[in-house]
Design a protein around this nucleic acid. Structure first.
Length: 801
DNA sequence: CGAGGCGTAATTTTT
DNA sequence: TTACGCCTCG
């Protein structure tokens, strides 16, 4: 295929098919720097992939000269697929990954330049916190009011700004004891990480920048290799990430490259040929900047034109995702943020349906509405996988999950308490890490007494002291356990453990991961010990460990050459959104932060209340409410056709019930765009004057008709018509106000169509159908006053009449 | 050393 | 409400 590059004769590359003029410009522009300001849903992924494909297709670049940074691993995989589909061939050697993955790759290759081993461990936040906790205790810094969270936050912030212990010390005020102690903690933390041959999340970026700055010949190698750098979600980059890109887009000092070897190990050809700096394309939208709390600096995008003089800016405002009603709401909300470049999303697909609003009496009530609405959407033909429920905090999942389980809705929670955060899984990982990186004492401490070997705190401290005195690692100290005066039982336990670890360590670089894990589990009797307790929870834990074994097998299949180190890297860098499985037929539940970059046919945005959105904690932070508004904006713009905004009048927190107020952001949406099934006013006047009558109702009776009718009339004049309309549309639906918290078990209660049952919340009803088998069987019930529901027979609060 | 009991603190958001 | 940490007892 040949291309005529004469602009006078426009050619139709298939890569440009279906793009609007702005998008084309973003694909075709060639120059040092390009900023694509891409509003939500403006097709930026498409533009980005086509831009990469076009660079390769025109032979302006080899795939290996391209570095594309995305926000999640999933986005990276998707982008690779789409580029390859556009080109009709595999694009070998292209780096498409997250900042963190790219940096790990560089660090593994270059670690030895600055005194780390290739086999370094990556500490996740929990590991960092555990280490900090230990240091605080050791330095008795808790007496100065230091908490783990504070210290971890401060260290992370400093690292994101590329400060290290020395630079912080230079600016520190040593008269302030707080600051002196903090410095001591910071110093000890950094020292421990180095001694453990470990990096924390922030180090991955920061240390790569340090590597480039300290070793220009290393930087030159990457500057020479990457000729085109593309960064997605640029508005959420922090200073360290900005600096990394800055380093990569400098002109390579080619004289440093003479005699250097390239990435395939061969001597570089023509290394001293002068090169321009790599071209840089960044894509972002300052209205979607939601990560200021982890150091994202909106100035990176706002000042892009100043940083890269002569940069071209392309604005994408046409939205291809949502209906006009949804966009109008989004525009109205974000318009309240001052100090922004005005940008109005528009579409040509038409108004679409109105936004649906609902105010529940409690979070359970709200959840019930969502479950019922999802059931209805599904009945109308919307797939579960095209529906998502968003919330501000992970704690909000509880009520939702409870109701979803009861309603037999298939769902999946992204992020939250992850599989990898379970204690037994972390223990198993402790073994793997101990084998991969013998210098890491954190992993060792974690597994020292798992399963129980009689090695307690005293033994551990003795070992650690011995190690410190001899200047060796904890692992080495364990090999000398017979020199420390332990009893025979403990000596044998320590020596036995270290022998297992040393033995398996020998094959850590070569053996398949499942084999390594199984060897460790068998030799230590970990799973066996869990099974032996007879405790059903331990049985579940044993199953989780088995599940991990299965996952390593899957990894092996996916990645036949994959080493233990690569497996550990991959698992430490999974993002919440990476867990998404497009082929699963489930509703997705996630936080608003996780939702960034995703889109769904129908979106439920829950807990739109003061204190939650905006969150209480953001109120005192400068720029907090504005960032929360952007978060709300991100949530709204995820929806293609249907958007639901819901809130609750009361929300239980720490077991206490608090009154909630509608979010200030709700008022920013023009009222005519929202169709309130139950507005805050309606819920308030009813719930406020007669709360107990409704909330306390138990047993088989529906809401008395007189109550409902009476209150519909007493709502304010403006709301009356709406209230009546809502009532007319759903004459029989009354939402349960509260659901009992205890998990019931109806044993092997069986129901059949035609049976009459009584539900604690919904009253009496008739079973219309039963589907599924055993504990998963679901009854479809037509209630007299609560409408049609699907119930999981085994656990629903029901009795047969 | 380890299990069990009691008291208090915690919930923003994440790679 | 839960989870973790600290304390005491076996």
């Amino acid at each position: 295929m040949t291309f005529i590059l004469d602009p006078a004769e426009p050619t139709e590359s298939p890569l440009l098919a279906g793009l609007n003029p702005r998008q084309r410009e973003a694909v075709e522009y060639r120059g040092q720097a390009l900023l694509i300001v891409a509003g939500a849903g403006s097709g930026k992924t498409s533009v980005l992939t086509r831009r990469v494909a076009s660079l390769i297709e025109t032979q302006e670049a080899w795939p290996s000269q391209i570095l594309a940074i995305t926000f999640t691993n999933k986005a990276a995989a998707e982008m690779r697929e789409r580029v390859e589909a556009l080109l009709g061939q595999a694009a070998q050697g292209m780096w498409i990954s997250t900042f963190h993955s790219a940096c790990v790759r560089i660090l593994r290759r270059e670690a030895e330049y600055f005194g780390y081993g290739k086999n370094f461990t990556i500490y996740d936040s929990a590991d960092s916190r555990a280490l900090i906790k230990r240091i605080i205790k050791q330095l008795e810094a808790d007496a100065f009011g230091f908490t783990v969270g504070q210290v971890a936050g401060k260290i992370s912030k400093l690292k994101n700004e590329l400060s290290d212990v020395e630079s912080y010390a230079r600016g520190a005020n040593f008269n302030d004891p707080q600051e002196r102690i903090f410095l001591e903690i910071f110093r000890e933390y950094s020292r421990s990480l180095r001694a453990a041959n470990a990096f924390d999340f922030d180090d991955l970026i920061g240390q790569t920048v340090y590597l480039f700055r300290a070793f220009p010949q290393v930087a030159a190698l990457y500057q020479r290799r990457f000729r085109h750098i593309l960064v997605d979600e640029y508005q959420d980059t922090n200073h360290a990430q900005y600096a990394l890109i800055r380093e990569l887009t400098r002109s390579p000092q080619t004289d440093l490259l003479e005699g250097a070897t390239g990435f395939d190990g061969s001597v570089l050809k023509d290394p001293t040929r002068p090169l321009d700096p790599a071209s840089l394309t960044v894509v972002g939208d300052s209205d979607q900047s939601i990560y200021a709390f982890r150091g994202a600096d909106i100035r990176n995008i706002v000042e892009f034109e100043r940083d890269y003089v002569g940069a071209k800016v392309v604005l994408l405002e046409q939205n291809y995702r949502s209906t006009q009603n949804i966009l109008s709401a989004a525009n109205a909300v974000i318009g309240n943020n001052f100090d922004r470049i005005d940008k109005k999303l528009f579409t040509t697909v038409g108004d679409g349906e109105k936004i649906t609003g609902f105010t529940g009496y409690s979070q359970h009530d709200e959840a019930q509405f969502i479950a019922d609405e999802i059931t209805e959407l599904h009945r109308q033909g919307v797939e579960y996988r095209d529906i998502a429920v968003f919330y501000r905090t992970n704690a909000q999942t509880r009520a939702l999950e409870e109701i979803f389980i009861r309603s037999a809705l298939p769902y999946r929670v992204l992020g939250g308490t992850k599989f990898y955060e379970r204690a037994e899984i972390k223990d198993a990982f402790g073994y793997l890490i101990a084998v991969a990186n013998p210098d890491d004492p954190m992993a060792l401490r974690r597994i020292m007494n798992v399963p129980k070997r009689g090695i307690g705190g005293v033994t551990e401290a003795t070992l650690q002291n011995w190690a410190d005195r001899e200047g060796v690692t904890l692992r080495e100290a364990m090999r000398h356990a017979d020199e420390m005066g332990f009893g025979p039982k403990i000596t044998a336990a320590v020596l036995g453990l270290v022998a297992i670890l040393d033995e398996v360590s020998l094959v850590a670089d070569t053996a398949p991961v499942p084999e390594i894990l199984i060897a460790l589990l068998e030799k230590t009797g970990f799973v066996e010990a869990l099974r032996a307790t007879g405790n059903p929870q331990d049985e579940a834990r044993a199953e989780n460990v088995e599940e991990l074994v299965a996952q390593t097998r899957e990894y092996r299949v996916r990645n036949p050459e994959g080493t233990l180190l690569e497996f550990l890297t991959e698992t430490s860098l999974v993002a919440a959104a990476d867990e998404l499985d497009d082929s699963s037929g489930t509703v997705s539940l996630m936080t608003l932060h996780t939702a960034k970059g995703l889109e769904y046919e129908a979106v439920f945005l829950t807990g739109v209340e003061e204190g939650l959105l905006p969150h209480q904690m953001s109120a005192s932070e400068p720029g907090g409410p504005a960032e929360e508004r952007r978060l709300f904006y991100v949530g709204i713009t995820r929806a293609r056709r249907r958007l639901y905004l819901s809130l609750a009048m009361t929300r239980a927190q720490f077991g206490e019930v608090n009154v909630a107020m509608p979010s200030r952001y709700l008022q920013e949406i023009p009222p005519e765009l929202i169709d309130w099934r139950q507005s805050p006013g309606m819920a308030n006047s009813r719930g406020g004057t007669q709360p107990r009558a409704l909330n306390a109702r138990r047993g088989g009776f529906g809401v008395e008709p007189s109550l409902g009718a009476g209150y519909a009339g007493s709502v304010g004049p403006g709301a009356t018509a709406l209230a009546r309309a809502a009532r007319a549309a759903q004459p029989k639906t009354e939402w349960a106000s509260k659901v009992t918290n205890t998990v019931r078990d109806n044993g092997d209660l069986t129901l059949a169509a035609g049976d009459r049952i009584r539900h604690v919340d919904f009253g009496d009803g008739k079973v219309t159908a039963v589907t599924g088998v055993g504990p998963k069987s679901v009854a479809e019930v037509q209630f007299e006053s609560a409408g049609r529901k699907r119930l999981l027979i085994k656990i629903s609060p029901i009795e047969k009449l």
